[in-house]
Computed example of a mutant assay.
Amino acid sequence: MSAVRPRILVIDDEPQIHRFLSPALDAAGYEPKRADSGQEGLRGIALWSPDAVVLDLGLPDMDGKDVLVRAREFFVKPIIILSARDREAEKIEALDLGADDYVEKPFGVGELLARLRAHLRQPVDRHDHAGPLTIGEVVIDLERRLVTRGGAPVRLTPKEYEVLANLARHSGKVIGHAALLTAVWGAAHKDDTQYLRVLIGQLRQKLEGDPAHPRLIETEPGVGYRLMSEPAR
């Protein structure tokens, strides 16, 4: 008996997107599903219970962000935004509304597949890891509040640990600047991105093999940071 393939629902009104993305998903071991409008996409989510959704923002019947909001009322699995809208405000709003990731058009199918693999590896509730999170030679044990690199303990300041812990709870997902600043420093500091930039630099010095070319903590320009679920190559 053949193994059940993860279902990926692509909600996009551009036929050419489906023409090249459906075969790519199929070749990568997924079962592609298609929807050409927001309403059709919402019905597809309810009907097919996909393992992940790739959602365009520019749909013919409704804004993709409205689809996202309505989907999040009943769907908890990964939703990756796929859109030609490249304004930072659009990315931030989509992430704040519950998107797990954002890929700009035009895009490389390899990048999209890598993002899908990363999100499908994560538990649905990222706040509850079954055990320590291992990324290359770095191990983050949230239960014991212990971080090691190559088996040796890493000394972190309380703020460094809190930022890393917040990223680890959502590993593989972009966390916005304001969300990280509010979680660690409080709402009064949600715009103090310089605090965060300095602290991320300190974490990279302690955790990365080459801090100038980080493979563990990735920057999403203008949006926030992502703790990779596996080391970037």
Results as ranks from 00 to 15, higher is better:
residue 205 Q to N: 12
residue 186 G to A: 04
residue 193 T to D: 04
residue 179 A to S: 09
residue 193 T to N: 04
residue 206 K to V: 03
residue 192 D to S: 15
residue 193 T to V: 14
residue 182 T to Q: 01
residue 181 L to M: 02
residue 187 A to D: 12
residue 196 L to E: 00
residue 208 E to G: 03
residue 191 D to G: 10
residue 199 L to H: 10
residue 180 L to F: 01
residue 210 D to M: 02
residue 194 Q to M: 04
residue 195 Y to K: 14
residue 203 L to F: 01
residue 182 T to N: 05
residue 200 I to R: 06
residue 200 I to H: 05
residue 183 A to Y: 01
residue 196 L to V: 03
residue 196 L to S: 05
residue 179 A to H: 07
residue 196 L to K: 02
residue 182 T to F: 08
residue 182 T to W: 12
residue 204 R to M: 04
residue 210 D to A: 14
residue 203 L to P: 13
residue 204 R to C: 07
residue 211 P to L: 03
residue 188 A to I: 10
residue 187 A to M: 08
residue 192 D to K: 06
residue 184 V to C: 08
residue 190 K to R: 13
residue 201 G to E: 11
residue 211 P to D: 01
residue 206 K to L: 03
residue 188 A to V: 12
residue 188 A to K: 08
residue 183 A to W: 09
residue 197 R to P: 02
residue 203 L to K: 00
residue 196 L to F: 10
residue 202 Q to K: 13
residue 208 E to R: 13
residue 189 H to E: 13
residue 181 L to D: 06
residue 211 P to T: 05
residue 193 T to M: 06
residue 202 Q to M: 13
residue 204 R to I: 03
residue 208 E to V: 10
residue 190 K to H: 12
residue 197 R to V: 12
residue 193 T to K: 05
residue 184 V to D: 08
residue 182 T to V: 07
residue 180 L to G: 11
residue 209 G to T: 11
residue 182 T to G: 04
residue 211 P to V: 08
residue 179 A to K: 15
residue 192 D to H: 07
residue 187 A to T: 10
residue 202 Q to G: 11
residue 200 I to Y: 04
residue 186 G to S: 04
residue 186 G to T: 00
residue 203 L to D: 01
residue 181 L to Q: 07
residue 183 A to L: 02
residue 181 L to W: 02
residue 199 L to E: 14
residue 185 W to Q: 09
residue 193 T to F: 08
residue 203 L to W: 01
residue 197 R to E: 12
residue 185 W to F: 13
residue 201 G to Q: 01
residue 188 A to L: 02
residue 199 L to Q: 14
residue 207 L to N: 14
residue 186 G to H: 05
residue 206 K to D: 00
residue 180 L to M: 04
residue 209 G to S: 15
residue 207 L to Q: 15
residue 195 Y to E: 14
residue 183 A to S: 03
residue 194 Q to C: 06
residue 205 Q to M: 11
residue 191 D to S: 12
residue 190 K to Q: 10
residue 209 G to D: 15
residue 211 P to G: 09
residue 196 L to H: 10
residue 200 I to N: 04
residue 179 A to D: 15
residue 188 A to N: 08
residue 211 P to F: 01
residue 181 L to Y: 02
residue 211 P to I: 01
residue 205 Q to P: 12
residue 182 T to R: 09
residue 204 R to D: 12
residue 210 D to I: 15
residue 199 L to K: 13
residue 179 A to N: 05
residue 181 L to K: 03
residue 190 K to V: 13
residue 200 I to C: 09
residue 189 H to N: 14
residue 197 R to G: 05
residue 179 A to R: 09
residue 188 A to Y: 00
residue 187 A to R: 09
residue 207 L to C: 08
residue 183 A to V: 12
residue 201 G to R: 09
residue 192 D to C: 13
residue 191 D to A: 11
residue 191 D to T: 08
residue 179 A to F: 02
residue 210 D to R: 07
residue 205 Q to G: 15
residue 197 R to N: 08
residue 191 D to C: 08
residue 208 E to A: 08
residue 184 V to Q: 07
residue 181 L to H: 00
residue 206 K to T: 00
residue 210 D to V: 06
residue 210 D to K: 04
residue 210 D to Q: 00
residue 193 T to R: 06
residue 208 E to Q: 09
residue 196 L to G: 04
residue 185 W to E: 15
residue 185 W to M: 09
residue 208 E to K: 11
residue 205 Q to V: 07
residue 204 R to N: 10
residue 205 Q to I: 11
residue 203 L to I: 04
residue 192 D to F: 02
residue 209 G to F: 10
residue 191 D to R: 11
